[in-house]
Write a protein that binds this DNA or RNA. Structure first.
Lengths: 220, 220
DNA sequence: GTCTATATTTCGATAGAC
DNA sequence: GTCTATCGAAATATAGAC
């Protein structure tokens, strides 16, 4: 817990005393994790630094010591999310077979919605609010990835392996559907009698989504 | 513009002087329209009454005269949105043919995303934030509609007219995809070179979405 | 680095003249 | 019903002792 360690500088036992850099890294991580959750739930405007500090078990003043401005903290959270998403991208390039490539990508996206729902929610909030902070990322990384995908789809279409649809329309459907399981979590739970899907149900749902998507492209 | 009309009570020309009730209705509508847009962009916490008042061309004090609490205003906006969504529901019950029924519903949802994107965005923000204000609506109206749909899907499935998939998984896909075109408008525009889809492109996209969805159920 | 106390700003809400 | 001026609460941010 940040602020509880009173390590005097005289205590020179090397492995007991953490360097300032290590302390900083540790506390920043603590705050970032809390911030991701609070920002996801309340949005940038709705979240307060006091809430985030409390959730992270850090005095409010310390939060401002590490992240002077609330907006700084928010940007760092966004940055981390973008980095996590860059990984999911790569789940595509491995296979030449459309069923394996597309199915694999959908499974990765579904897994990401399960493991990092907060990231997806913050992304959605950002885009709903006009995409101010993620604009550049969309115009570069996302756009390039989309164009790569469109080229690959064109090849598959020319080979007659998938249906003739605007790739973008299909990919938007994939994004929308997979992220729905993160962003609309609370709605899904309410419709499921208040209970979240257990991992068995989620796995089954994932395979159904894959099945629907592949069939929509006439694969198999 | 509210507040600019200085109609003296002496001016008794009946058709020139609007009744207080009419004035109220008019100004409430003005404020509600502005509120829907600002809340959609900023969320409840991020929006300020000052912004809404300015956007509605109404002094801030007047906004609080019509809607004493910010939360009152928000609830009224949510209420209006729910009412609009209740209409879309009914686009299903008309046809016995699954292609016509489902296709028609998707077209209505896509049209709603086009005509009332703010409503969809506010709904999404609410659900992302834990669905506090829409919880009851989800548990009653939405749930009942979903269950009706599941019964209808079961019939079609028993008749062998659509694929054997959990109807809920399919319907979530429909919601996610159609609402994506409202909620992720700014992302879609950025990926489209900064330009929104024109009505021709949107119409084409709608038909592609319908095609993908129906094919995913093995219809046609 | 930590943390109490406080400064500063912003925002929701109201008083009171017209 | 309208609107200027303002209050009071809440939130961001900092000062300064430890």
């Amino acid at each position: 817990m940040a602020g509880k360690t009173k390590t005097k500088s005289k205590d020179s036992t090397a492995d007991k005393r953490r360097s300032k850099a290590a302390i900083r890294e540790e506390n920043e991580a603590l705050i970032l994790r809390a911030a991701e959750e609070i920002f996801a739930e309340k949005g940038f405007g709705g979240a307060t630094t006091a809430q985030i500090a409390e959730y992270a078990n850090v005095p409010k003043a310390n939060l401002h010591y590490y992240f002077p401005k609330k907006a700084d903290l928010y940007r760092r959270v966004i940055e981390d999310i973008c980095n996590a998403w860059l990984d999911a991208r790569n789940a595509f390039d491995i296979h030449d077979d459309p069923a394996a490539a597309i199915g694999g990508y959908i499974r990765v996206k579904m897994e990401l919605s399960r493991s990092r729902p907060h990231g997806s929610k913050i992304w959605a909030s950002e885009v709903i609010s006009g995409a101010g902070e993620v604009q550049e990322y969309i115009q570069t990384a996302v756009k390039e990835w989309l164009q790569d995908m469109e080229r690959q789809f064109k090849i598959w279409q020319d080979e007659g392996r998938i249906a003739q649809v605007t790739p973008r329309t299909f990919l938007f459907m994939v994004w929308a559907t997979t992220q729905h399981y993160a962003d609309f979590e609370s709605q899904i739970n309410l419709l499921n009698g208040g209970e979240p899907l257990d991992s068995e149900e989620y796995k089954k749902t994932t395979e159904e989504v894959v099945g629907l998507m592949l069939r929509s492209l006439n694969i198999k």
